[in-house]
Design a protein around this nucleic acid. Structure first.
Length: 582
RNA sequence: GCGCUGGUAGCUCAGAUGGAUAGAGUACCUGGCUACGAACCAGGGGGUCGGGGGUUCGAUUCCUCCCCAGCGCGCCA
């Protein structure tokens, strides 16, 4: 159990003992160092309910706490301050002992959850018709980070990459493909060249579609053929999908994202189940026909003048929609995957759509009421001027281009800092730094609204960035290269303020991790790691290690060691690597 | 029109369940490398938290009304 929860539990009990039932202690880390390490803010609220003087209540609570061994073991002193805060100062000896235990434990003393869930996490989900662009970054890396955190806490995590591999646009692409195939007799070479850049391929096909009537007609015809299961077109389609997935895999590998082919659960997978979804919806009585389309009307979704916004699940021409597929996927995830919690890392613009899917899914009994379905939304990417982000030519920026640029800029920097390193090392360091910086720039924000894309912020290597955290780690490794190993029997002492600050921060790692697991907000972990690194940097300046006497040196080495372990584990949860030197 | 997000320092952003003097980074200014690595550290200036009302001991946080921005709202995904 983390310190905050531990204190909160005991003080909430003490409040109950003092007569305030159901009054949370509201323990937080202190706003300012002179207020101690933690503070309980709940006394004032509780006193109000009891119509008591808050300071009087605080006095009673503190008296109770001082008799409780469970808490006096870790607390040096309580003090009542202001209108009725209880400030809590932790014991140095207890902190030191806790550091020792954490250092010895596996997994930095992070406790596994006592109620493991089967979490299905839907993330990345690119459209395979095109190449991944910068807009796919958020879903991909936030989803990946959350899934790592949940796994660390002992949940069963099932990744689902719900890629878009079906729909009318494939008619256009396949028609263009077969055209190219006919033109170049020699081993599909022209086709392969063109498929290497899906973005250009798509644009070229689009031009043909827009300019040539016969081509367009052919394309529409071919969609029907594909959907009817035409063997030739299925083969062509498969080739296209494979190529596109290879592009994705390449990106995932560069990004150090854990998604594999096994996690791909494409839209087309649900094709055969769509008719059943309609039939089963009909059985529940939720379905009604309107202007030839099959719809679900629910009171939950009112539009203008109290008219209800329908969720259309089947078009008047018999075709199915995104909503139908999502319902099928929802049911699959419950029935086949055993989902108890579902996380959707999807653009905020789809929030109404997803809300409808969740409500209809539950009403129809596709998933039980108890299943927690959470849309972890994020906003549109905007340019500097606050309008939707576009390149000069009007397209989006390819994700691969951003990543390559990151590696390039990092390489220049590494070269200027370490001109003597061999090129291979510099390349490897540059990749770790560059990709880390891009990921951190995105992961450290918690914007559910739109956010601004900026090359320079995204590719900055100074200040609150991944390289800052990686640098702290590299510095520690450098110390250990010179200092050798730690004497395990050495005692930890926390005499300097910088030592104490670092130690306290080190013990708060699990608090950050648990927030990420609950709310899906990796930015809390980023923030924690940045503060930890900051505390370490200050400690590093204020408390020399190599020059200290042997006892102090060993104590400080242990703090450094745990800092390195925490940074490595924490960054790994973000999908960011560390390195021995940089 | 209805609805969902958001508006915090020049810029980019943090601020979980209402708490004490609202924080980082960047940019700007002052210092610090003969040093366990300057991708760093110590310090400075910079704010009516979009605006008005309300709830209360206390509001950036909750309620309400405006203003601004982005997005969504029956056969796209």
């Amino acid at each position: 159990m983390n310190i905050r929860t531990q204190l909160d539990t005991i003080i909430t009990q003490a409040l109950a003992n003092a007569g305030a039932d159901n009054a949370p202690a509201v323990v937080k880390t202190s706003a300012r160092p002179e207020f101690g390490d933690y503070q309980a803010n709940g006394i004032m609220g509780a006193a109000k309910k009891l119509k008591m003087n808050p300071r009087e209540l605080a006095t009673k609570v503190v008296a109770d706490l001082e008799l409780n061994n469970e808490i006096t073991e870790l607390v040096e002193s309580f003090e009542i301050a202001g209108p009725g805060f209880i400030n809590i100062h932790l014991k140095n000896t207890w902190l030191a002992e806790r550091i020792e235990q954490t250092l010895k434990s596996d997994n930095l003393a992070i406790a596994k959850t006592n109620k493991p869930e089967t979490v299905v996490i839907d993330y990345s989900a690119p459209n395979l018709a095109k190449e991944m662009h910068v807009g796919h970054l958020r879903s991909t890396i936030i989803g990946d980070s959350i899934s790592r955190v949940l796994e660390l806490l002992g949940h069963k995590v099932i990744r689902q990459n719900h890629v878009g591999d079906w729909g009318t646009q494939f008619g256009m692409l396949l028609t263009y493909m077969s055209e190219l195939k006919q033109e170049s007799s020699e081993l599909n070479s022209e086709l392969e060249v063109q498929l290497a850049d899906l973005e250009k391929f798509y644009q070229a096909a689009k031009i043909r579609f827009d300019e040539d009537e016969t081509f367009a007609a052919q394309a529409r015809e071919n969609v029907v053929k594909l959907q009817a299961g035409d063997v030739e077109f299925l083969k062509l389609w498969q080739q296209f999908i494979d190529t596109s997935l290879n592009h994705c895999d390449e990106i995932y590998q560069i990004l150090n994202v854990k998604l594999t082919r096994d996690d791909v659960a494409p839209e087309s997978q649900y094709n055969d189940d769509l008719a059943n979804v309609i039939i089963d919806l009909d059985k529940t009585g939720l379905l009604s026909e309107n202007q030839g389309a099959q719809c679900v009307f629910l009171d939950e979704f009112k539009g203008k003048e109290d008219s209800i916004i329908p969720m259309i699940v089947q078009k008047s021409d018999g075709g199915y929609l995104y909503a139908t597929t999502d319902l099928a996927a929802l049911r699959y995830r419950h029935n086949q995957l055993g989902m108890t919690r579902g996380l959707y890392l999807v653009d905020a613009r789809q929030s109404l759509h997803l809300k409808q899917v969740y409500v209809v899914g539950k009403k129809a009994g596709f998933v039980p009421e108890s299943t927690s379905l959470e849309h972890m939304a994020f906003g549109t990417m905007m340019g500097k001027d606050g309008t939707p982000f576009k390149t000069r030519s009007g397209g989006t920026v390819k994700l691969i281009d951003l990543l390559n640029e990151a590696k390039l800029r990092a390489f220049d920097l590494v070269t200027s800092k370490n001109p003597d390193l061999d090129e291979e090392s510099r390349r490897s360091i540059a990749n770790t730094v560059g990709i880390g910086a891009v990921k951190y720039a995105d992961l450290s924000k918690n914007r559910t609204s739109d956010y601004i894309f900026n090359w320079d912020t995204m590719l900055s290597f100074e200040g609150n960035t991944a390289p800052y955290l990686q640098y702290a780690y590299a510095r520690i490794q450098s110390i250990f290269r010179k200092a050798g190993d730690i004497n395990n029997n050495a005692e930890i002492s926390l005499l300097e303020p910088a030592e104490r600050l670092l130690a306290t921060k080190l013990l708060q790692f699990s608090e950050a991790v648990e927030i990420v697991a609950k709310d899906g907000t990796p930015n809390f972990l980023c923030n924690y790691l940045f503060e930890l690194s900051g505390n370490f940097m200050s400690f590093y300046e204020a408390c020399p290690i190599m020059k200290a006497d042997e006892v102090t040196k060993q104590s400080r080495l242990k703090l450094a060691k745990l800092t390195a372990n925490t940074l490595k584990t924490g960054l790994d949860l973000l999908g960011i690597d560390v390195m021995e030197r940089m």
